[in-house]
Design a protein around this nucleic acid. Structure first.
Lengths: 118, 118
DNA sequence: AACACATATGAATGATTGTTCATATGAGTT
DNA sequence: AACTCATATGAACAATCATTCATATGTGTT
């Protein structure tokens, strides 16, 4: 019935090392960051914005998705500083907030073309 | 009532460009990849394995999590070729499958230390 | 001021994902 | 062969997340 392995340390050195590695990182933040990129709609938005500025309307046309779905995702991206907005009349234009773009994401977006091109 | 913006193209050039960018990438695959990293438990497992080999028991001790939760996540990581296994008697040891580790993830794991250390 | 358009948002619904419990499998030990 | 330990897995449940619909806000136009 019991699974005592959780009460004994089987490989103390490795476990100690792994625990230290964990403590030295920030898994929660990391996972949170990847969650942003883990949605197809959000990734599409980021890719769509990777070279041009688009208004909400353009984005929903591009992705062929409902305006409100896009708006909700944009809010999420906005809150996490991945995109920024500019109002022009009735329209609101979105661009990538490149300064806040985690180097990892920047690289990813860059990588994409190369890989797909080959 | 209507929101016609989805039927008219507001900024044709930008939309065309964005559509092309989208077609040239693979958003579904990309999102799928990030989904792997978007779980706190999975990221912790990957971090824990980043420098040492661990058996399932060690991992659940390290993360202070239930064995079956870990096993389920390990299966997921295995299926996606992020980790590989080696059996030694009753125990099964997990290591990162570095060859299959997407460059993005490899960099991320490398980055971590540097950033947290500073 | 009334209207139309672009975007945002709240609430509800549906889909996806993670964890748990119970149990199965497979290896070593007696 | 019976038993124990380590891991895996199926099914149920809980939690999280994305999308929809209805409606609100804010801007420009008549």
């Amino acid at each position: 019935m019991s699974n005592d392995c959780e009460e004994f340390v089987i490989h103390p050195d490795n476990v100690a090392h792994a625990k230290k590695t964990l403590e030295d990182s920030n898994p929660t933040e990391l996972a949170g960051f990847f969650k942003l990129l883990a949605g197809e709609t959000r990734i599409k938005i980021l890719l769509a914005l990777s070279e041009v500025e688009l208004c909400v309307c353009d984005i929903s046309t591009t992705l062929n998705a409902k305006q409100s779905a896009i708006s909700h995702q944009l809010r999420y991206l906005r809150q996490h500083r991945l995109v920024k907005t500019r109002r022009d009349g009735k329209q609101i234009f979105y661009t990538l907030e490149r300064e806040h773009l985690h180097p990892i994401l920047a690289q990813t977006l860059a990588h994409m073309k190369e890989e797909e091109a080959s």
